[in-house]
């Protein structure tokens, strides 16, 4: 296979784009997809101060590298989940990566917040993935607001977004369908959230990471086995293999033709969040989920 742009030997085949790219041209392709997402979805402006949620995986590190190369004002936040082995390894990868690229790195330790994930898991006695996600979203948002960042960027890729959309459709969860997308505007208590990799598949970020020499952490989370998103992703991989381009068409079609209807319905019928009386974080419950959890865990402050 030859590179679609320069006719050299291709290193990456992309049936969804009916194209193949050599290493140099693939990195141009990748960067253009990120720039297209930023421009078309108006994700952020050059003057924005961007906090990037860093997990140590290929997606968040690829995002951080690309935004740095594009000249945006960025810093990273790594949340240490206190999971034996895996959190230490991921933290080391993030630390090395940020030192090499000159990215300012913040670290927030869930042990110090009284919410180490292994202890939370023991206490809850149910799959911890959704609670872990809730805790991370809470602290990423709060850290961004408390430290003057105007945008929080995450490394969610096309596969993440399509699996989430599929899951939301399977449950017809109108609240989630109404606010799923690559940009969530800032609201009272919420920083603006963006997903600049939403046009790029997990396969594409894996190729980018390899070609860019990113030393990422690919040890899976020990608690994620059997997670429903992993199953949805394998179903959707099969669909994409049989019908290349299906994922991006499904997702872009949703953004362009369906999301607004769900958002309108939520405006009419959905619950309006109010500030949590304990921490001020917006919630539709009496107290927010993280404060409830802190109470269960007996965490202080």
């Amino acid at each position: 296979m030859k590179c679609t742009r320069c006719r050299a030997t291709a290193a990456v085949a992309l049936p969804s784009h009916n194209a193949g790219f050599c290493p140099d041209c693939f990195q141009v392709f990748f960067s253009r997809q990120v720039q297209k997402a930023i421009k078309e979805k108006d994700l952020f402006q050059p003057e924005d101060k961007i906090l990037i949620a860093l997990s140590g995986g290929k997606d968040s590190l690829s995002l951080a590298r690309e935004l740095k190369l594009l000249g945006y004002d960025t810093a990273g936040l790594y949340i240490d989940l206190a999971i034996p082995d895996s959190s230490v390894k991921a933290g080391e990868h993030v630390g090395r990566f940020c030192r090499e690229l000159g990215i300012n790195l913040h670290v927030l330790d869930l042990q110090k917040e009284g919410l180490p994930i292994p202890e939370v898991q023991k206490k809850l006695r149910r799959p911890v993935c959704s609670v872990c996600g809730q805790i991370k979203r809470y602290y990423f948002n709060r850290f961004a607001l408390d430290n003057g960042y105007s945008v929080l960027a995450t490394g969610h890729n096309l596969d993440d977004e399509v699996a989430r959309l599929f899951s939301n459709v399977m449950r017809w969860d109108t609240a989630y369908l109404g606010d799923q997308g690559p940009a969530l505007p800032a609201q009272e208590g919420f920083v603006r959230k963006v997903k600049p990799l939403y046009r790029l598949s997990e396969f594409e970020t894996a190729n980018y990471s390899f070609l860019a020499g990113i030393d990422y952490c690919y040890a899976p989370c020990p608690y994620s086995r059997g997670a429903s998103f992993t199953f949805y992703k394998s179903l959707l991989d099969e669909l994409e293999h049989q019908q290349p381009g299906r994922k991006i068409n499904f997702y872009e079609g949703f953004l362009n033709r369906a999301r607004r209807a769900f958002a309108r319905q939520e405006d009419l019928e959905g619950l309006k969040p109010e500030p949590c009386p304990v921490c001020g974080y917006p919630t539709t419950g009496e107290v927010c989920g993280v404060c409830r959890l802190r109470e269960i865990m007996g965490a202080k402050g």
Partner: peptide
């Protein structure tokens, strides 16, 4: 499936036809 893994030989990425 080809979209589920990258294939590497001597630090070079290989497309499915190689």
């Amino acid at each position: 499936r080809p979209n589920q893994a990258i294939v590497i030989r001597e630090n070079e990425l290989l497309t499915p036809d190689r």
